[in-house]
Design a protein around this nucleic acid. Sequence first.
RNA 1: GCUUCCUUAGCUCAGCCGGUUAGAGCAUCUGACUGUUAAUCAGAGGGUCCCUGGUUCGAGCCCAGGAGGGAGCGCCA
Length: 467
Amino acid sequence: MPADQLRRTRIQDLLTSTDLNREVLVKGWVRTRRGNKYVQFIALNDGSCLATLQVVADAEKFPEESLKEVTTGSCIAVRGQLVASQGKGQTVEIQATDIEVLGTADPEAYPLQKKATSLEHLREIAHLRPRTNTFGAVLRIRHALAFAVHDYFNRHGFYYVHTPIITGSDAEGAGQMFRVTTLPPEHPARTEDGSVDFSEDFFGKATNLTVSGQLEGELAAMALGQVYTFGPTFRAENSNTARHLAEFWMIEPEMAFFDLQDNMDLAEDFLQSLVKYALEHCAADLQFLNDTYDKELLARLRSVTDNAFQRLTYTEAVEILKSAKKKFEFPVDWGTDLQSEHERYLVEKHFQKPVILTNYPKEIKAFYMKLDDDGRTVRAMDVLFPGIGEIIGGSQREEDLGKLEGRMAEMHVPADELWWYLDTRRFGTAPHAGFGLGFERLVLFVTGMTNIRDVIPFPRFPKNAEF
RNA sequence: GCUUCCUUAGCUCAGCCGGUUAGAGCAUCUGACUGUUAAUCAGAGGGUCCCUGGUUCGAGCCCAGGAGGGAGCGCCA
């Protein structure tokens, strides 16, 4: 390689380097430029870390006029000496010998000037918000958590199974679905009785975007033993909250030969490992979020890694809530689903740590959950987190074909559409369990953000699919 | 979908009881300043007060409808 073919170094690597007084090349986006007619300072960020690198440009080499285009938001390449900093805010800096403007950013038009903007406004410029400290930190943490998910399962003998995004069943039991079709919306083919003729559609039948990979995950678990899916899921619910998205990523492990206890053990160890990974690998970003948004963030993360989760049955929880002094807006009664206020009371007031609730009444849970011996409850589990509410929902599955068919009939789930699912119980059925973890809810918890639309790069929610 | 709050400069906001030419901080621009840390100091430019209609001598302010956004709730992950 010729001597003048200097390779770019990431800013994170330069800031941690002890190998000073050498020529380096950095490229990134300008956060600020300040100074006087003798010396100019440029704060440069390349996304590799939260911190900026200070570029020093002396007036002898760089008259102020030559730096006119080096404005907040512009992209530059800087060649220079990596030296110990004379200033106080940083240990190293670059004494620039050459600055090339790769892309200008008109200061009158660029919306991210060096001034705090609200998260609400940043949602409207979501295409640019990754350039802010906050979203840089959130996206790096999001990446770390995604990596940690794969790392955890790989280390524990799970296989990553890619379940379909487009599904032919419209009864996965987890909510309203988005239709996938190539039929013309104005004049779709009609059958004789006037309904849309999906036999003319691309797949020859009605298809939708998946709401869950669980059922397919169960098929794989009945062959590979321990599997997981990690992919996008879609819910066409008109949900307008800070905890719901129309498009979100879900992690769904499914394990043959696991009962509800094994399932809880896995969920707890999994969540603790993920949070621990973030604490170890995203220290600077987490510290920034802690200092900027939520002074309790780091303490709350450690409370998850350092405490065993409280486990109790739905029935026990109802008793605690009934004897609680607090007045609830909604009354608590055995058989009704718990409201957000009830879950919050248990997690944030009563136990003050994560809670796993189990053995819910069968009426309020899905058809595939294994019936308890009493015939009234099912082997369900919900993991409740402070500030988030339900972060995991899971269960031991009903492995008995007859009982499963009975539950499907009771709950009006069309068995003929799920013939392939029932085959798992027909041929070599086995006890098994699994759960679903909403990835964005995990990122929400770990980052301390309060709106789920701020932890996914391009949020999809009712009336919004911009970018 | 329900409840509730909000919408004024590029951003974050103030604007009294309805009353003359709608303000501040930051950003931007111009200038000053020998190493700054969201630099500092001085000055300048910058407005469809979300939209439509109404009440009034007069509306940023009151009323109605609409649009957009936030928070809470429901559905859930």
